[in-house]
Structures are given as structure tokens and as C-alpha cells.
Design a protein around this nucleic acid. Structure first.
Lengths: 349, 349
DNA sequence: CTGTTAGCGCGTTCAT
DNA sequence: ATGAACGCGCTAACAG
């Protein structure tokens, strides 16, 4: 591997001149620049990333903090990752996937202190997030996918859960549904203050109330059989229920199964809309699901761009972005079934 | 940030002694070692990753080559990524996600020459893979998830497609199915020599022939509507068809839909088994799919371990691993329907 | 506009 | 068993 010294010799200039030519850090005459680039070309020279990082104190590496929770990342989160990787590369940064236990603060501390990365993008942010508190206290550059409660002035991209929930509810209400359940994720995620779970919950309660609808909440583990049980519990307690909004991708198959076992069909007898679920997911189901799909590409991308702008001192007019979800009507939602048509089935339980 | 010099001063030893103590590169008296570690503790010293990498010529960073193909990565591939990330971290390596255009050789060349990573794990390997040829020619350390045709002596983890296909076929044959179709991925992937597509295809043809079964091949784009069309084409040309094996996750919803539209039900009238599809996927479908599930965790993990062992000169007894898939019987396969029961439906087309 | 030089933080050879 | 000193490849003052 040729080094910068080799290039300098070949071009007949000083080492530093090569450096300046490469980084554009100071003006170089066209003629010498040409000689330098010729030499680089001929030698096949490539700057050494580590050496550059050591000297400049900027590695051009960022980390995506990636919790290896048992819950497991879903399809949607995966798309954050790939879009983040793409965005990093487009900005000439490398993206390291830092898989770690969310509660292991010491490990995060180490990451920030070993000088490997210039900043971090934090995923799965909670309302009171110790990691955020720590990073901020240290003054270590970061951005969030999601947001904590004390996120004022800090850079984040998050989904606009209120708007999303409103769109979902209005879609159903527009179809005549009046009693609507929200199948959230687990109650423990709620207690832990996991952003999407809490914000959606709050929005659901508020909006159903504003609209004068009958809104029912059901927490549910993120697994098909949990969805199955959730539906049965709901329908038993609320025979008028005609529609579900689910923030819980993994529960959906169970819900559908329970619906089918009752002899009902979707969307004729029951409607289901998933919120904050990637398109790839909604299309895997039969019937294809009506969904509120986040622009996942924007999420990962914006997250790293926010961080990079911050690292490069480029002021960001508005470092906070709430991304809307797009309503895609597929085949899992329809008009509310009429009450009479329903009762015969309900009793057959 | 304290440096090694600070530690040395505080412990009253030479800089190099600290280095030796840290790396265990040479014997240190218990007493001075203790002093050194005390100093490290008190100062909160953390070795600087870049400096260490520069000096040692080993960055302890590896890259996962991650094609950003239009086709999009599926659930299954995603699990490779997360398991690779976990394995890297357990071995004290950082994993950078290198998203790039598979055909952009210059970019790969650059990655290997900029001194950032010690080696790469290549995903989505093709039979004649220019990337592999290049890496090998350069002598750059790498391992593969998948394998090329000339993989002799090189490290890889791949799925045992032959065994997997055999298990799938035998499962169906055991249920009395005789005419079985294989819904592969796109023909262009086949022509391009994409490993899973080619190897599964070969295995399918060979095994059905050995078993005296009627094996039909159907290429199919990786999208639901393509699956829909594929099924209709198949059933029209082969009215005896009673079962499908699919390597094509994304096509499954379309297939199921087409089956349903024919008034058939799964698994009573038709059986479907997916191969090489992560459990998370098979459970998202209704009915839950009988599947041959790869131990995805092992795939990503073994890929990075192979690479790391190679980097650290630890001889690997057998640097090649064929991972089997596990047959999980769910609700999409059943006994072959009897011919008579069938015909009335077939004509109603 | 260009050259000289001192680090960046750590690994490692050579002495002792 | 320990120290001193050099070098990894590059950036960024400082000096013309």
C-alpha cells in the first residue's frame, strides 16, 4: 500500500501539500494539484482511514445503537437500519452496528470513550432514557430515532403518533365503526415508557374521546398467540366491537385467526388496521392489511443526517422531525357490519 | 480523555509497560501490574481504538458486505445481520454495515484498501462471484455467507440446500403428494447464478426424479402478485398439482390467495411448504406455514467467527459449514387430496 | 501558494 | 522484569 509520502515524492511536493490537496483545506495551484492527483492515480493511493482519524480526531465512523432485546426487531426496524446504512455511506461515513444490551450503560460509555466513533444514533428511545441523559451530560454527539421526554433542542426523527392514530381512527370512523379497540404492545413496554407504545396509547384515548367513540385499550405481547387471546378477550367483553387498530405487527396473525374461528370474515364482519408497520409486512398477510405505513426510509436516513450535520457543525434549521405515516387502504377494512346481521354470530359463541 | 502516558505516570512505570500489561504481550510482575490496573481504574482510562489500530495494523473492525439490491432483503437475511453483529461484539470486534452496489467492484476495492477493516463477510454470494475472485486475488481476508463455485478451502457458511429440498420433498411425498411444484425466485436470479436459487433448483429436479415424482419448476418474481400468477399458471398446466414448495417468501401471500379464490383450502385441498424462511415469517401467515427454517442465528454468527478465526491465525479445522434447515410442521401441509374430490373443482375454473 | 515539523495514542524493537 | 525511542500514516499549526 502506497502512503502519502510516496505520493509526495512522486509528485515532487511536500507531504503536507498532498494532504491539503486531498482535503481542500487550503488553496493549491492547479498545476501542482494536477501533478498530485496524477501521482495518486498512478500509485493507486488510498488514504488510510485510521491514520486520518487519529490525526484529525474525527474517524468519520458513527454507530447505530441497536438493542438486542428479546422482543426482537421487526420488519419495520430493519428498514431503519438499512436506510441508515445507505445514508451514512452517501455522506462518506461508515456505520457500525452496535448491538448491545440497552441497560448496559457502562458499555455505552466505553463505546463513546474509545474514540472509535464520532457520534451515535440511538434507536428504541424511551421517555426517560438513561442513555440519552448520559450522552447529553457527556456532551457526546448523538441523534435519536424516536425521542425522549426531555428532547428539547436535541435532534430526533420520530413518527407522528398522534397524527397517525388520528388517521387510523378517522378512517374507521368514516366507515361507520363506533366501538374500536387498540391492540397495543405489552404493558411492560408501556410501563417502561417506550415511546411508540406510550404516545400511541395517549393519542388513542384522547382522540376516541374527542370523537365520542367507544375506545378500548388492550395490551398484548408481541406474539401471534397473544393476539389470539387478546381478540377473544376483547370480543367477549365488548360484543359491539367491530374494528381493531394494532400497533402490534406480530399479534396480527393471531387476531385474524381468532376472527376467522368465530366464523367472521375480514373486512365484512370485522375491520383491522395496523399502524406503524412497514409495507413489506402488510402485504405478507391475507387479506392484505390496511395500514399506516411510516416512511421508514426517511427515518433511518434522517437520523444519521441529523447526526452528521451536527458533527460537521452545519446548523440544522429544525433538528426535530415528526414523520407522518401514509394511509394505505388495502383489504382489511370495510364498513361497520350492521348490528342485526351480527347478533346471530355473537350468541353462537 | 486520559492517555496511556497518563496511566504510566500515575503508576510510576514506563509507557511501554502499560502497553504490555494491557495486551499481555510479555510478563509483568504482579505488583506493577496491580499498580497499573489501579491507575487505569482511577483515571478511567480507555484505550484509543484508532491509535491502537494504527500501531498494530489491526483495527478489530470487520465489515458485513450488504448489497442494497432492489430486491430488498427479507426477514431471513435480516437475522443474519443481527446475529453477525452479536457475534462480532462477543469477540470484541466492531461490525460495520457496508451497504453497496454488488456490482461496484471499485468500491469494494476501496474498502479493502483504506485500512479501516481487517476483513469482510460477504453476503448474497453468487456462483461466479467477481467480488470473491477479487478478494481472493488480493489476499484480503474474508468469509462468505453462501458460497461460490470455486470455494474450495475458503471459509463459508451456507445452507444445505440439497438436504433441505430433500426434507421438503419427502415430507410432501410422505403425505401422498405426487405432483409437486417448486416456486423458485426469479429466473434472472437463476441466470445470474445466485446460489440459493441455483442449488435449490438442481436439488429439486434431481430428487423428484430419484423419487419418481412429478416435479415442476416455476420461476417467480419475489412479490405477492407474482405468486398469484405463478399459481394460476401452474394449476392450469398441471391439474394434478397438489403441493408447492416455495423458496420465495414474498410470493406466498399471492399463492395462498390464488388457492383460496379457487375455492380450495389449505391444507385440505392444497399443501404449501416454504423452504429457507425464518420462523418469524412462517408464523405471520395464516395458516401458519410448514417450513424448513434455517438456523439463521448460526449463519451470521458462523460467518463472522470464521473470519475472525482466520484473522487471528487460529486454524479452523473445517472452515466450511453447511447448515441444515429444521422442518417445522405447521398448518399448511396435509395429505394429498383424493383425485375424485378434486375434479369438480378443477373444471369450475 | 508551498514546505517543515510536531504531534495524534499506541505497539514494539532494542537495550538494560 | 522494565525503559527509551522509534514509527504507524496523516493533519494542522507554524514558517516562509
Amino acid at each position: 500500500m502506497p502512503t502519502m509520502t510516496d505520493v509526495a515524492k512522486r509528485a515532487g511536493v511536500a507531504l503536507s501539500t498532498v494532504s491539503y490537496a486531498l482535503n481542500g483545506t487550503r488553496p493549491i495551484s492547479d498545476e501542482t494539484r494536477q501533478r498530485i492527483f496524477d501521482a495518486i492515480e498512478e500509485l493507486g493511493y488510498k488514504p488510510h482511514a485510521l491514520a486520518r482519524g487519529l490525526a484529525s480526531k474525527r474517524s468519520r465512523i458513527i454507530a447505530l445503537l441497536f438493542p438486542n432485546s428479546e422482543r426482537g426487531l421487526g420488519f419495520t426496524e430493519f428498514e431503519f437500519v438499512t436506510s441508515a446504512a445507505n445514508a451514512a455511506k452517501e455522506n462518506q461515513y461508515s456505520l457500525v452496528l452496535w448491538s448491545y444490551d440497552m441497560h448496559d450503560l457502562p458499555e455505552l460509555l466505553q463505546l463513546t470513550q474509545q474514540g472509535l466513533v464520532d457520534g451515535v444514533v440511538v434507536m428504541e428511545v424511551h421517555q426517560h432514557d438513561k442513555r440519552i441523559a448520559m450522552l447529553r451530560e457527556m456532551g457526546f454527539p448523538f441523534s435519536m430515532i424516536g425521542r425522549s421526554d426531555d428532547a428539547d433542542g436535541m435532534g430526533y426523527v420520530d413518527i407522528d403518533f398522534h397524527q397517525t392514530m388520528q388517521d387510523a381512527i378517522d378512517h374507521l370512523a368514516g366507515l361507520g365503526h363506533h366501538t374500536i379497540a387498540f391492540v397495543n404492545q405489552s404493558e411492560s413496554a408501556f410501563s417502561a415508557g417506550y415511546g411508540p407504545v406510550v404516545r400511541s396509547q395517549v393519542a388513542f384515548e384522547r382522540i376516541t374521546q374527542e370523537r365520542g367513540l367507544d375506545g378500548i385499550t388492550q395490551f398484548c405481547r408481541t406474539a401471534p398467540n397473544a393476539g389470539y387471546n387478546a381478540f377473544n378477550a376483547l370480543i367477549e367483553a365488548h360484543p359491539d366491537l367491530t374494528a381493531i387498530i394494532s400497533l402490534n405487527e406480530r399479534a396480527v396473525p393471531g387476531i385474524l385467526q381468532a376472527v376467522a374461528e368465530r366464523g367472521w370474515s375480514v373486512p365484512d364482519d370485522f375491520s383491522l388496521v395496523v399502524v406503524v408497520s412497514a409495507a413489506g409486512m402488510a402485504e405478507m398477510i391475507i387479506p392484505p392489511l390496511t395500514a399506516l405505513e411510516p416512511l421508514t426510509n426517511d427515518m433511518g436516513r434522517r437520523g444519521v443526517e441529523l447526526l452528521i450535520h451536527q458533527l460537521e457543525g452545519r446548523a440544522e434549521a429544525d433538528p426535530q422531525a415528526l414523520i407522518p405515516c401514509r394511509l394505505v387502504v388495502r383489504s382489511s377494512t370495510g364498513p361497520s357490519p350492521l348490528i342485526p346481521a351480527r347478533q346471530r354470530v355473537t350468541v353462537s359463541r
